[in-house]
Design a protein around this nucleic acid. Structure first.
Lengths: 238, 238
DNA sequence: GCTCTTAATTGACCATGGTCAATTCGCAGA
DNA sequence: TCTGCGAATTGACCATGGTCAATTAAGAGC
């Protein structure tokens, strides 16, 4: 929340000063409320977006109308930039899920910068590769972790991973959405959270979770996983 | 199988002629048998690899010794190149699963080319983004498709997607491995394949699958998915 | 404060797929 | 052709999580 600046956006590191200047003049910054659709799947893509505050859900709809969550991004991420490299259509829909601040700017601006600035391309490569590693882990989690473990793993990663003592975690968005993000039904989420409570001694009050130390969660959730204890490489979630 | 050349490797499109020349002189081409480990997870990375023929499994080991499959790549793919952008360690192990031909070359060669050639960086970005789309789909499949549907989806994508008439598909590697690749146990795979047989009328004889037309499979497998019928964007599997 | 709407929880039941054990199949090597 | 070993299949059973319905909790607007 601490005022994020355009030049802090990690995926844009390496962009030229001219790029940031143009972005400031031509970019359009708006506050958007929960529920606002930024763009929809298969739409012709004109702009890319930078999330300066809040949370945005990227998703697709299946034939029967259900949603399939691609990711839920925190502030500091860009989205809707991939049509530069593809067919010019958005590969997913984007919906604001918490009050947010979003900058939009023409894809052409980013495309031209990428074409003329290898440093930016390399930096984007770096970020994509890190993201891929996170996704690999996510896919692994879906098969090796059960529902309570997935929740524990998520909570663990939301917390400051190096704090020794008691921790307080605020769930960043609705439990229903969190359930979908973790690939389970809301009912399963509710029950799994209850089980996690009795297994690890965490305390849950609404959207606030308290625990005495992270060790408990780590032991419970990370045991089955291929990564060492504090799961370093994982899709960003805060 | 039809003699692949270095210059055909899609992810290297855009590399300079000097790069390919150096690659030819300094690269080391070897035939490798099934079971051969190319490198292991967390090992210091010296080389990247190009798979000219065969299949390679990328995987990690979980605490209890089980394997978590990251991907199983067909000829034409590179692997072990990401340490360039990370900590210099391989993020997974690589094992040959069918008789293969592999070229190895120093990571520094690729790194220098990337640093001086934006066209190559852009092309790699394009490929990674396409791959990400595939992984998004893969993750979706894990939650919306059941076991027989996942197998059907896989078979469908192995076949020539535009052939109208009868199709013959050869499973590219062991069923046990295929099961792991699709995120299920061998027993489940066996039963799911049997169910797919009775539901769609495909005929299975060992590693050979025959069907009268793809429509049957498409109807059965793609119904629940967020993509239109022939699932375009998906992790490459042939 | 009250009302309405949506989120969250809980219960009962069931389908899917995992586990363990026992065969059977298929192929490489003698 | 026979043998032996790993792959594949099949059966029986069970754990996990999905589904549907009912109930409770929480938050926004008046």
């Amino acid at each position: 929340m601490s005022d994020l600046q355009i030049r802090d956006i990690a995926i844009l590191h390496g962009a030229s000063e001219e790029f940031f200047t143009k972005l400031e003049s031509v970019g359009n910054e708006r506050k958007l409320d929960k529920g606002k659709i930024v763009f929809i799947h298969e739409e012709q893509a004109e702009n890319f977006y930078i999330l300066m505050a809040g949370w945005v859900k990227l998703f697709r709809e299946t034939a029967d109308g259900a949603q399939s969550i691609i990711d839920i991004l925190p502030a500091g991420h860009t989205f809707g930039e991939t049509p530069i490299f593809e067919d010019g259509l958005y590969p997913y829909s984007a919906e604001i899920v918490e009050p947010s601040v979003v900058i939009s700017a023409p894809l052409s601006l980013l495309k031209e910068e990428l074409q003329s600035n290898n440093e930016l391309s390399m930096n984007m490569l770096k970020h994509l590769i890190r993201y891929k590693r996170g996704q690999d882990r996510e896919l692994e989690h879906m098969t090796v972790q059960n529902a309570p473990q997935r929740i524990g793993c998520f909570l663990m990663r939301l917390a400051d991973s190096d704090s020794k003592g008691p921790v307080t975690i605020h769930l960043p968005y609705d439990k229903t959405l969190l359930a979908a993000r973790l690939g389970m039904q809301p009912e399963t989420f509710s029950r799994a959270l209850a089980k996690l409570k009795e297994q690890t001694g965490i305390r849950v009050k609404g959207a606030v979770v308290e625990l005495d130390n992270l060790e408990q969660l780590i032991n419970y959730s990370c045991q089955v996983c291929s990564s060492e204890f504090p799961c370093k490489d994982v899709v960003s979630l805060k």
